[in-house]
């Protein structure tokens, strides 16, 4: 343990590209294995819910997608802020790579929520605090993507996106605490740091496995997109030209 890993070297696009190439097959393998285990337990081991019947099984994708939508937004705002403060281009690039995946998970949280709300609440959609703030999150992601793609100058686009991402981060705690602050149709948190989980442990296990599967998926796909963005920006450098043409 005499030579510590010098993490900052991975801030160079060429090293980052190389590292991701090594990591991604493992991330995909982990995502697939966890998904298989999570869905098996979720559909073949976890019992039917006493009040919601089998409709509750949407939870195994709904809650992980909703968590990812918030976590990825905070990660995006963090890297955008880092890129802005320290003029670190790989940080800003990572923020750009995170946005589409975050938007996809936000859409999935809303979609699966609608398909859960219809049988349990009797409606696809209500304008309550939790649902509305999650919809605003989707618009923040789409606004971030649209703003950056509208500005041709990369550095200016990074800065404008950072301002939007940082201001919008206020929305994330609003989403999280909305079920406590306002009266809402949405049920409270199934899991919290202060109380025992209010669900059967097989249900909880399936949900956690799917959450880690979504994490691995998000890392892998964001890294792939970051590789693409790095190649686009660095196309006239020696390390990009030295890469094999087919991949």
């Amino acid at each position: 343990m005499s030579t510590p890993i010098r993490w900052f070297t991975f801030a160079a696009p060429s090293r980052f590209y190389w590292l991701v190439g090594k990591l991604n097959p493992w991330l995909w393998a982990i995502a697939l294995a966890l998904t298989a285990a999570g869905l098996y337990i979720g559909f073949f081991v976890a019992p039917t819910d006493a009040t919601q019947g089998d409709a509750y099984r949407i939870i195994f994708i709904h809650v992980p997608a909703a968590w990812m939508s918030m976590v990825l937004y905070l990660a995006m705002a963090f890297w955008a802020a880092m890129g802005w403060m320290f003029n670190a281009r790989m940080a800003s690039l990572l923020a750009r790579a995170l946005a589409p995946t975050g938007a996809m998970f936000t859409f999935l949280a809303l979609w699966t929520g609608a398909f859960w709300g219809k049988p349990t609440w009797g409606t696809w959609w209500v304008w309550d605090a939790r649902l509305t703030s999650e919809l605003i999150l989707l618009f923040l992601y789409l606004g971030f993507i649209a703003l950056q793609s509208a500005i041709d100058d990369v550095v200016r686009g990074d800065k404008a996106g950072a301002v939007l991402a940082i201001v919008g981060a206020v929305n994330v705690p609003i989403i999280y605490f909305s079920v406590r602050w306002w009266n809402t149709l949405h049920q409270g948190a199934s899991i919290s740091a202060t109380a025992a989980p209010t669900m059967a442990h097989t249900m909880l296990l399936a949900m956690l496995l799917m959450t880690f599967a979504f994490w691995a998926y998000a890392f892998a796909v964001v890294f792939t997109r970051a590789q693409a963005l790095a190649l686009e920006r660095e196309r006239d450098t020696d390390w990009v030209r030295a890469l094999p043409a087919s991949r």
Partner: peptide
């Protein structure tokens, strides 16, 4: 989504060459 990201990477690599 992963297929689109991979296509974006492949096209960036082709453009670079």
């Amino acid at each position: 989504e992963p297929l689109l990201a991979r296509r974006q990477r492949r096209q960036a690599l082709l453009a670079a060459h």
